[in-house]
């Protein structure tokens, strides 16, 4: 029952997000706004959210299953993408390499070099 009560809370936040998106015209999905509302609500209340946790944990654990119909779709549109496949792959691979470099370089400068080598040596 606890999980069901939590589920109602989650849907409540989702619908509240939907209302906010409709009212403000923000080009953001209702789920993201609902997530931010939930986070804000948890920060404000600090505790007593066992119901939400009972529903949120299994839902998060099954995210992989929930996105599967989307993943399968890729095998059925490969034909349409034939002309663009090289562009897509280069963009993904090179783009990821560049953005990983940017992240590591920037974070090292900002978080500070003094303890950069202090933690977690030898986990490769």
């Amino acid at each position: 029952m606890s999980a069901l009560r939590g589920f109602l809370w989650l849907i409540g936040f989702l619908l509240a997000g939907e209302v906010l998106v409709t009212l403000t015209g923000l080009p953001v999905s209702a789920g993201v706004i609902g997530m931010l509302l939930l986070t804000a609500w948890l920060v404000l209340h600090g505790g007593g959210f066992d119901d939400i946790a009972a529903s949120a944990r299994p839902l998060i654990a099954m995210l992989g299953l929930l996105i599967m119909p989307g993943v399968v779709g890729i095998f059925f549109i490969l034909d349409e993408l034939a002309g663009q496949l090289t562009a897509i792959l280069v963009a993904l691979l090179l783009g990821t390499l560049l953005s990983v470099f940017t992240t590591l370089w920037l974070m090292r400068r900002l978080v500070g070099g003094h303890d950069t080598n202090a933690r977690g040596i030898g986990h490769e």
Binding site: M35, L37, I52, S55, L59, I60
Partner: peptide, 21 residues
């Protein structure tokens, strides 16, 4: 048909607020 399963993505996205907290 699988769209019914993906309907749960909405509440699951909201649920991500818990680990974020």
């Amino acid at each position: 048909g699988a769209g019914w399963l993906m309907l749960l993505l909405g509440p699951a996205t909201v649920a991500l607020g818990l680990p974020l907290h």
